[in-house]
Design a protein around this nucleic acid. Structure first.
Length: 501
RNA sequence: GCGGGCAUAGUGUAGUCUGGUUAUCACAUAGGCUUGCCAAGCCUAUAACUCGGGUUCAAAUCCCGGUGCCCGCACCA
């Protein structure tokens, strides 16, 4: 679905709206309404059920969203979060310092101060790539973290976390004990992260407050290549660097085993790519042809990542592939930095007394972006009606309950709606306007089932205490005894968990 | 952040160039009548010129600024 169309629908149905709208809004901030909040919760629960379910040694924690300054200093976010820029004073165009100085300083600008970068530019008479002016200046690097006063004196600083990953690294020593000394050890966090983005845009794609679902897996690097259970014949849509360099945009389907055997990727890494792919397919129901795992080259990926595939999905709303998640091999960068920063030894002892500083595999997933993706890919207009083909277990409301004729069947239907809600279903009762309109309303909200009470339900005939269950996608109807309703629907509404490979 | 464009009921829009009646239309929403299993019909109601300043007898319309949105560049998990 097109971006404008999707946003209009989301606004109309109360999925989301701009924060502080009556004051003109605030860039990069959106609030979720009832439908959006419920859907987002379902996505988070589905993600947790799936990824934490991958192993008994994977856990979810819920840490604080504020990080003391020492943490972000050690993690590198305080200095390194943005690359230094060079701005042309003549045409006001900003460039990455590294790019502009490439000819005169091929080794890059890491570690140089603002003054040193400016000096190099002037000494070599570097010109603006766009207008040729030599009037270049180097502004102080912009840090994308939100800093806050911490404590009553205001002398201490803390920062809203720019990513949830840091919390998992900080939790490692505790989790090593709580997890009873097991590797691999997974520590998941689902929660808000905050970045003062320069140019928030595209609704949920670059927010200043956004929700990440991340799983950091600490593992023994000696086991990275250890063969794990066979991948059977799983094929992954991957676009590797060599193929990209030939100008290809589309992925090729490569057997997981081949990615390991001839593709040079560690088995443990590929195993988690397979699980990520299955989550996209089996839980979010993204079409196979929309997904690709996009390999980042050494230049493109963050410096701490040794292997990086972005999990991308092609969205009509933004006319191309968008990053909705990623699989990062971060090596021992994080634990090394935090061991140095804190002065604590973060190595652990495994097996017969071998000391190991675990490496980290990071699975990261953008909750807001995927909520948008579920709208883009599953909302379809079909002969003048709009249907949100959400997987049933993700639907904000599971069942709509309607009286065929409000006056005649309303009391029974209202009672039935209460009973279903008490049984744990999310239910919406609606008696307004015609039955067709009510079906249309729930179709648009992604509700998979409609239950209608009619004359047969109330009559002392063969249809006594039966209702019609109408299915969103097929529009088919079946007569079901009310006592069997919960049992009938429960299966489709249960969150999927990963099968053991 | 730079450049360009845009901003009218809940949603989508007409009107702006060329200032001048009660601001157009559709859908949505609420109530009534009727109907009774896929957005039916009729009647009624609710509801808007992004904010601030300026020009003018008069501003949705022209000018300036703020805010927000879109596109390109730059940046980016």
């Amino acid at each position: 679905m097109k971006s404008d169309e999707l946003l209009a629908l989301f606004l109309r149905r109360g999925v989301l709206w701009p924060t502080a709208e009556i004051y003109g809004g605030a860039q990069g901030l959106y609030d979720y309404g009832p439908l959006g909040a419920a859907l987002k919760r379902r996505i988070e629960d589905a993600w947790t059920s799936w990824f934490v379910g991958l192993s008994p040694d994977y856990y979810r924690i819920e840490p604080a969203e504020l990080l003391p300054e020492a943490v972000v200093r050690a993690s590198g976010h305080l200095e390194n979060f943005t690359d230094p820029e060079i701005v042309c004073d003549a045409c006001h165009t900003p460039f990455r310092a590294e790019t502009v100085l490439e000819a005169v300083r091929p080794e890059g600008v890491d570690g140089l101060s603002v003054a040193q970068i400016a000096e190099i530019a002037h000494a070599n008479h570097v010109k603006c790539p766009r207008c040729g002016s030599e009037a270049l200046s180097v502004p102080a690097p912009f840090n994308m973290m939100f800093g806050v006063d911490f404590g009553v004196t205001g002398k201490e600083r803390a920062y809203l976390r720019p990513e949830t990953a840091q919390n998992s690294f900080l939790a490692f020593p505790r989790m090593w004990e709580v997890g009873r000394h097991a590797l691999p050890l997974g520590v998941a966090v689902v929660g808000k992260a905050y970045r003062n983005e320069i140019a928030p845009r595209q609704v949920l794609f670059r927010l200043r407050a956004f929700t990440q679902a991340e799983l950091q897996i600490f593992f023994d690097p000696e086991h990275f290549d250890r063969p794990i259970d066979p991948f059977r014949d799983v094929r992954l849509p991957v676009l590797r660097v060599e193929r990209r360099e030939r100008g290809e945009e589309t992925p090729e389907f490569i057997r997981a085993e081949d990615l390991v055997a001839s593709g040079g990727l560690p088995a443990f890494y590929v195993h988690h790519m397979v699980q990520f792919h299955r989550f996209f397919r089996e839980v979010l129901a993204y079409p196979e042809e929309s997904i690709r795992f996009f390999e980042k080259s050494e230049k493109e990926r963050a410096f701490y990542n040794k292997i990086q595939f972005d999990a991308e999905v092609r969205l009509e709303s933004f006319g191309g592939y968008k990053e909705l998640g990623a699989v990062h091999y971060r090596g021992d960068y994080d634990l090394t930095r935090h061991a140095e920063g804190s002065g604590k030894d973060l190595a652990v002892t495994v097996g017969e007394g071998r000391s190991v500083l675990p490496h980290v595999l990071e699975l990261t997933f953008g909750v807001d972006r995927n909520l948008w993706g579920l709208g883009d890919l599953h909302l379809r207009t079909e002969d003048a009606r709009t249907v949100w083909h959400l997987p049933p277990f993700l639907a904000p409301v599971s069942v709509g309950v309607f009286p065929l004729i409000a006056k005649a069947h309303g009391a029974y239907a209202q009672r039935l709606a209460d009973d279903l809600a008490r049984a744990g279903l999310t239910v919406q009762y609606d008696a307004a306007s015609s039955i067709g309109r009510r079906y249309a309303r729930i179709d648009e909200a992604g509700t998979p089932y409609g239950v209608t009470v009619d004359a047969g339900t109330l009559d002392e005939g063969p249809e006594h205490d039966t209702v019609t269950v109408r299915e969103r996608d097929s529009r088919s109807q079946a007569r079901v005894p009310v006592g069997e309703l919960v049992g009938r629907l429960a299966g489709a509404l249960r969150l999927p968990r990963p099968p053991r490979i």
